[in-house]
Design a binder for these strands. Structure first.
Lengths: 265, 265
DNA sequence: ACGTGTATGTCGTTC
DNA sequence: GAACGACGTACACGT
């Protein structure tokens, strides 16, 4: 049973919030506030109208009228205090330990408080992430190179992991680093580090191949300079050619599923 | 003038949203929906209750009842379509080009629609970010080492930038990499890369110093192995000792400012 | 708890 | 527009 409170007085708002926090409800507040943050950094935001979301796990988000990112936030917090100052300012203070971070919101007025126990048992599935690509190339190494045999995926090194480790048709070890987006110089460094590490540990100089849909200019330069290789592989193509049709998402399919299941939600 | 609509019918909701989008209002929707995303990746979320924020710049956020991060989103979108399917499903589709991404939300029911033109002219100020630390150490190199002279900050190399570049009291060039937080092996690699780059370009072997509040075990190992140095510098200490008291934020100060300004907001 | 790597990362800034 | 690096990155996973 959601609670909807329009233009509550400061004292009223305090009451509502205390109750909602105790009940572990999701809270949405729209109002005029200023914010102080002290922790990994320090920041101050002077007054203005924003949307605040407080979740039962202690996550807090403050959104301005534009932009994707919250202007202030708390990924989670153990303690959320609510109090008022002379019945004129509503203060919400969220404290997090490790690292110690304190977020304090000062509301001068509240336009809306929405409180609700949201029921969300939905399942989230993601496709074409690095993990899925890795599994696919593990099964189909010929996509990278004819005659390549993959021996191990996520092979642990002293530091970090090799995405795919294999042997080419001449018996030379091959270290493969995957990127799902344009590979930059950073990715080359990562691969180079693994190659060096492997060579130091085993005394054998391996091939290093960077697999990505595209490569930055600097990445190509660095690869050449360091004697590393690259393979351009398009994810969209992989998706279309190798992944099961049953996994594809069509809008109509989604709508059908939805109409079948929607009424439970 | 905010619009608050509780449990609107699907057709009603469609109307409200169209109007709010045309007026470039901020929109908050609470309801039961499923979501498809196709773009840089693909994802599907089956039905459940969530909070959706749509901003006038086309940013969209979908929040589940827990967690800091939105389960689905669009950083900005040129086109937002709203339509219904047999008056049973409300569909909001957001399309972004470059990269092409399509986010589609299917609502089976809507508990709340809040629409408002939020007025936010607040100023956001952040202190103790990397930039500020760099400027401080530029002015006070003795914090890093007695006799050190800084010649350049953000010195461009063929790849990337050196945070601080200087000369020690024996005339040897020094490359300094700064980290605000615990330095990991990645930071060491970055420094190492700059040192090698510099040596290759000039033929002179510089000192490399990693400056951070703390160092991971692996970072220390790597530093030793590569012949690089480290300086442990606490940001909090820097803040207290070197930055002007006028910049410090006290809660009471904030509250006072706020009470002075709050009524305009 | 620390370390390591991914992310539909996002975001600023520079080339 | 591409690319490069920082971020209060968050988050998951392994030790």
């Amino acid at each position: 049973m959601p609670g909807i409170h329009v233009n509550p007085e400061i004292r009223e708002a305090e009451e509502i919030l205390r109750k909602a926090l105790a009940l572990k409800e999701v809270i949405v507040i729209v109002g005029s506030l200023s914010i102080d943050y002290v922790g990994r950094s320090r920041s101050r935001l002077t007054p203005g109208e924003r949307i605040v979301i407080i979740k039962p796990d202690g996550s807090i988000l403050v959104h301005r009228p534009t932009g994707y990112k919250p202007v202030n936030w708390q990924p989670d917090s153990k303690i959320i205090d609510v109090f008022t100052h002379d019945s004129e300012v509503l203060v919400i203070r969220s404290i997090r330990g490790k690292p110690r971070e304190v977020l304090t919101m000062y509301f001068s007025s509240v336009k809306l408080i929405y409180t609700d126990k949201l029921v969300d048992r939905g399942e989230f599935a993601m496709y074409i992430d690095e993990h899925e690509i890795r599994d696919l190339l593990y099964k189909h190494p010929e996509i990278i190179e004819e005659g390549l045999r993959i021996i191990e995926k996520e092979k642990p090194l002293r530091n970090g992991y090799i995405d795919l480790f294999g042997v080419d048709n001449r018996g030379r070890p091959v270290i493969i680093e995957l990127k799902r987006i344009t590979a930059t110089r950073e990715a080359v460094l990562q691969l180079y580090n693994y190659v060096i590490e492997y060579e130091k540990t085993t005394g054998i100089k391996p091939r290093g191949i960077l697999v990505a849909p595209s490569f930055s200019t600097k990445a190509v330069e660095s690869l050449n300079k360091l004697g590393l290789e690259r393979r351009e592989i398009s994810l969209q193509k992989l998706w279309r050619e190798y992944l099961k049709p049953s996994q594809t998402i069509s809008r109509m399919q989604s709508l059908m599923d939805y109409l079948g299941k929607g009424r439970e939600g």
